[in-house]
């Protein structure tokens, strides 16, 4: 507590206040203010593959899209439903194996296996997690992280579905442009769809469940059913990522149950800003290429990666996106008291 006789005042920009109402379309300034960030995001993502110097970096974009999707899904479930889910690995693994098994047994093309794996995998994961939906906080997180670990052991022990070798020679995408634009397009669709969803009445119920599920239950709403729906949405997104990866590699195996798929999205979310949905995308856009660039310096990669993450948690726990949004919508000035 200082004794300075002035304080920093934070005010909404005039244009922000205007654009909240009907006046949003009153002039070019207002329209630009609203459209610019969204357009920059969409165009940026769409142009990104075109400016990449090599095929290698386009592949990096593909994995960046996967982590971005997983991170957005994690953010949705953690911040809007209150379930901290470490099940990214479960979702990708299940999605990859469904698509892989379908492809190897029936020879279906990715255009069919991916949607089937997305919906079917979402359903399976939701059923797997259904018994622990009443659990909250750390219990739910533990259960979601146990599943992928257990499934890997079961697959190894039973030696089914390719065992430790995995299933190879699956149908792949026709060319790199399909690969990269499929995932980036999906990122945009999921991002805007979820953003719309959480602001609808449906999202209101979900946020209510996060804040106080007993009060929501007292309003006559079936909390577990709503939670299951939210988990299905998240799981379906994760399974899409898994199915996509299996088609991208033409192979599916135990490494698609790797904990990277659980942990990296959380790192991206922490960096980008929890609760913004677009923040996790930003985090993934920074972290995935960063880890590729750092690959050149070998083992130090992990150290630098950890330092970046730690400093974000310690110095900027609100994340990048919250900070950027505040700067965009508000201005500050000193005021005498």
């Amino acid at each position: 507590m200082g004794t300075e006789a002035r304080r920093k005042e934070r005010l909404d920009r005039g244009v922000k206040v205007r654009t909240e109402k009907l006046y949003a379309v009153s002039g070019w300034q207002e329209i630009t203010y609203l459209v610019l960030p969204r357009l920059a995001l969409i165009l940026g993502l769409l142009i990104l593959p075109l400016v990449m110097p090599s095929m290698y970096w386009q592949k990096v974009l593909c994995s960046m899209g996967v982590f971005a999707l997983l991170a957005i899904a994690f953010d949705f479930l953690a911040h809007y439903v209150g379930l901290v889910c470490l099940g990214g690995a479960l979702f990708t693994g299940v999605g990859a194996y469904i698509s892989g098994l379908l492809s190897s047994s029936t020879g279906l093309s990715p255009a069919l296996t991916i949607p089937i794996a997305t919906l079917g995998g979402g359903l399976i994961c939701t059923l797997l997690l259904l018994p622990c939906l009443p659990l909250r906080g750390v219990y739910f997180a533990i259960v979601t992280i146990i599943y992928p670990l257990a499934i890997v052991r079961i697959l190894t022990a039973l030696n089914i579905w390719g065992g430790t070798e995995g299933i190879s020679a699956l149908a792949t995408f026709p060319n790199i442009w399909v690969e990269v634009y499929l995932i980036l397009g999906m990122v945009l669709i999921v991002l805007f769809a979820l953003r719309r969803l959480v602001n609808e009445d449906y999202g209101l119920v979900l946020r209510g469940i996060k804040d106080n599920d007993q009060a929501v239950r007292a309003s006559g709403i079936n909390v577990t059913f709503y939670k299951a729906q939210a988990v299905f949405i998240t799981a379906a997104i994760g399974c899409f990522c898994g199915a996509y990866l299996s088609c991208l590699y033409g192979w599916c195996g135990l490494s698609l149950f790797a904990l990277d798929f659980s942990i990296l999205p959380i790192a991206a979310t922490v960096m980008g800003g929890l609760g913004t949905l677009v923040g996790p995308l930003l985090g993934a856009c920074i972290l995935t290429p960063l880890s590729e660039v750092l690959r050149a310096i070998g083992t130090w990669r992990i150290v630098i990666y950890c330092v970046v993450l730690l400093s974000f948690i310690v110095f900027k726990p609100e994340g990048l996106m919250n900070w950027i949004q505040r700067k965009y919508h508000q201005f500050e000035h000193w005021e005498k008291i």
Partner: peptide
Amino acid sequence: EMKGGERITVVGEMRLNGEDIMD
């Protein structure tokens, strides 16, 4: 401050037995 929320400003004087306890 850490989570970037509301900024709280406290100004004034507070003395406990004559000793400044503001900080």
